[in-house]
Simulated assay, not measured.
Amino acid sequence: MFKGLGGLGDMTKMLSAAKEMQSKMAQLQEEMDNMTVTGEAGAGMVKATANAKGKVKALDIAPSIFSAQDKEVVEDLILAAISNAQDKAQAKAAEEMQKMAAEMGLPADMKLPF
C-alpha cells in the first residue's frame, strides 16, 4: 500500500541537510564580518584592513610619505593596498567556504554559495 513512499525519508533527509547548510552559511556570513585581513603596499607604508567580505575597515599610512609632490604616488599606494586587502578577503572567504563544504561532506571543488 505504501510502496511508493520509500523515497520520502530521503527527501526529509535532504531537506534537513539543506536547512543545516543554510544555517551554517548564515553563521559563516556573520563570522566573515569579523574576520580581518590586511593588504599592504609600498613595503608596508600603506596598509588597508578589510573584513573577509571585502569591506575596508581601516587604513594606515606612514607619515613619512606625505608631501605634495608625492600625491599621485600616495594615491596609487592606497589603491594598491585596498586592492591587496580585497584580494586577501576573497581568498579568506573562499577558504572558509571550502572548510564548511568539507565539514558537510560536500565535494572539495563545489562552489558555495551556489
Rank of each mutant, 00 (worst) to 15 (best):
M1K: 01
F2S: 04
K3M: 06
G4L: 05
L5K: 04
G6H: 06
G9E: 07
T12F: 05
T12M: 11
T12I: 13
M14E: 02
M14Y: 02
L15Y: 05
L15R: 11
S16G: 08
A18T: 12
A18R: 14
K19R: 14
K19D: 11
E20I: 04
E20R: 11
M21I: 02
M21H: 01
Q22D: 03
S23L: 05
S23C: 03
M25L: 08
A26L: 02
A26W: 00
A26F: 00
A26T: 05
L28T: 08
L28A: 10
E30F: 05
D33F: 14
D33W: 14
D33S: 15
N34A: 14
M35A: 12
V37D: 05
T38W: 05
E40M: 02
A41L: 04
A41Y: 02
G42Y: 10
G42K: 07
A43R: 09
A43F: 13
G44T: 13
M45A: 11
A48G: 01
A52L: 04
A52Q: 05
G54F: 07
G54N: 07
G54P: 00
K55E: 15
K55V: 15
V56R: 13
V56K: 12
A58C: 04
L59Q: 07
L59N: 11
D60A: 12
D60R: 08
D60M: 09
I61S: 02
A62K: 13
I65T: 09
I65G: 03
I65E: 03
F66Y: 10
F66M: 09
A68I: 12
D70Y: 10
D70M: 15
K71W: 11
V73L: 08
V74R: 14
V74P: 12
E75F: 01
E75N: 03
I78K: 14
A80S: 08
A81D: 07
A81Q: 07
I82K: 10
I82L: 05
S83A: 15
N84T: 08
N84C: 04
A85V: 06
Q86L: 09
Q86E: 07
D87P: 01
A91W: 06
K92D: 12
K92S: 14
A93D: 08
E95P: 07
E95S: 14
E96S: 15
E96R: 15
E96F: 13
M100F: 04
E103V: 11
G105M: 03
G105K: 02
G105T: 01
L106K: 03
A108E: 10
D109L: 04
M110C: 10
K111G: 06
K111M: 13
L112H: 06
P113C: 09
P113L: 14
P113S: 11
F114V: 01
